Simulated assay, not measured.
Amino acid sequence: MEILTDRLRLRKWTNRDKPAFAAIQADPRVMEYFPATLTRKESDAVVERFKKHHKEHGFGYFAAERRTDKQLLGFIGLSRQEYPAFFTPCVDIGWMLHPDVWGQGLAAEGARACLEHAFGALGLDAVRAVTVHRNMPSIRVMHQLGMAYEGAFIHPDFADRHDQQPCLVYVRRAPAEGQP
């Protein structure tokens, strides 16, 4: 299973992706809006969780690679979320990309393709996105994707990071039949 866009190949994870992804997750710029930077061992465990999610659900956070040189850029994709919140359980769309490609529209490009997959092949009626209230770049991507603000909540994964609370949730509902 893979999704192709003009510039990206979204595909399943392999063990070869682990070193490059660990470097991305060790970068404090990338992890500014996440609970903490990750060690190599912690990052490898994340890749294993992504692989398990794909196997169990048939979708997940994809490894995002640039089509021209096959360089791993991070992840873009869909994931089931079941932590306690007013909108869960749900399917969430998320992204994390290397700082060298920020501002190039890749998150929106890949996420648009994932939304098409979610509403088409997967038949989902809604997809949500969550971010901390200060993450303006991701909020801009959510707006570009046509997502609407749904509310704020206290994310259990950020319990000890008061600077990251509240988190915001946005939603995009499946288009009505015949609508783009």
Results as ranks from 00 to 15, higher is better:
residue 50 F to E: 02
residue 154 I to Q: 10
residue 69 D to N: 06
residue 116 E to H: 12
residue 173 R to K: 13
residue 100 D to R: 02
residue 45 A to L: 08
residue 171 V to L: 07
residue 127 V to Q: 03
residue 53 H to R: 06
residue 28 P to E: 03
residue 34 F to L: 11
residue 159 A to M: 07
residue 141 V to P: 00
residue 70 K to C: 10
residue 94 G to W: 01
residue 78 L to G: 01
residue 55 K to D: 15
residue 72 L to R: 06
residue 106 L to Q: 03
residue 23 A to Y: 03
residue 149 Y to G: 10
residue 151 G to N: 07
residue 75 F to R: 02
residue 169 V to H: 00
residue 180 P to T: 15
residue 38 L to P: 02
residue 72 L to E: 04
residue 138 S to K: 02
residue 47 V to M: 04
residue 134 R to F: 08
residue 17 D to R: 01
residue 58 G to K: 11
residue 11 R to G: 09
residue 87 F to W: 08
residue 150 E to K: 13
residue 81 Q to R: 09
residue 163 D to E: 13
residue 19 P to L: 08
residue 154 I to V: 12
residue 53 H to C: 09
residue 113 A to N: 08
residue 26 A to P: 05
residue 22 A to V: 03
residue 125 D to C: 13
residue 98 H to G: 01
residue 137 P to N: 10
residue 58 G to F: 13
residue 136 M to L: 14
residue 27 D to E: 04
residue 172 R to D: 05
residue 77 G to H: 04
residue 81 Q to D: 10
residue 80 R to Q: 12
residue 156 P to S: 05
residue 100 D to M: 05
residue 13 W to T: 11
residue 87 F to S: 07
residue 4 L to S: 14
residue 112 R to Y: 08
residue 20 A to S: 11
residue 110 G to Q: 05
residue 159 A to T: 10
residue 101 V to T: 06
residue 79 S to T: 11
residue 39 T to W: 07
residue 146 G to P: 02
residue 27 D to K: 03
residue 150 E to L: 15
residue 40 R to C: 06
residue 32 E to T: 05
residue 67 R to W: 10
residue 171 V to C: 09
residue 18 K to Q: 14
residue 10 L to G: 07
residue 159 A to H: 08
residue 110 G to V: 05
residue 69 D to T: 00
residue 99 P to S: 02
residue 178 G to S: 08
residue 89 P to H: 05
residue 170 Y to W: 07
residue 161 R to D: 00
residue 33 Y to D: 00
residue 82 E to T: 15
residue 110 G to C: 04
residue 145 L to M: 04
residue 121 A to T: 15
residue 71 Q to T: 14
residue 56 E to A: 14
residue 103 G to Y: 06
residue 70 K to I: 03
residue 75 F to W: 09
residue 174 A to T: 06
residue 99 P to A: 01
residue 113 A to I: 06
residue 11 R to H: 08
residue 104 Q to Y: 09
residue 28 P to T: 08
residue 9 R to L: 12
residue 161 R to N: 03
residue 133 H to Q: 02
residue 67 R to N: 10
residue 80 R to Y: 12
residue 125 D to N: 14
residue 127 V to F: 00
residue 22 A to Y: 01
residue 60 G to K: 01
residue 169 V to E: 00
residue 76 I to W: 00
residue 4 L to F: 12
residue 147 M to E: 02
residue 82 E to P: 11
residue 99 P to V: 01
residue 43 S to I: 04
residue 106 L to H: 03
residue 85 A to W: 03
residue 96 M to K: 13
residue 174 A to M: 06
residue 81 Q to Y: 11
residue 136 M to P: 04
residue 144 Q to R: 13
residue 18 K to G: 05
residue 84 P to T: 07
residue 88 T to C: 12
residue 12 K to S: 14
residue 120 G to F: 07
residue 65 E to A: 12
residue 113 A to E: 11
residue 143 H to G: 13
residue 177 E to V: 15
residue 103 G to P: 04
residue 143 H to T: 14
residue 38 L to V: 04
residue 103 G to I: 05
residue 117 H to W: 14
residue 179 Q to T: 12
residue 73 L to P: 01
residue 86 F to K: 08
residue 43 S to T: 05
residue 14 T to C: 12
residue 124 L to G: 04
residue 180 P to K: 15
residue 119 F to V: 04
residue 102 W to R: 03
residue 166 P to A: 04
residue 137 P to L: 09
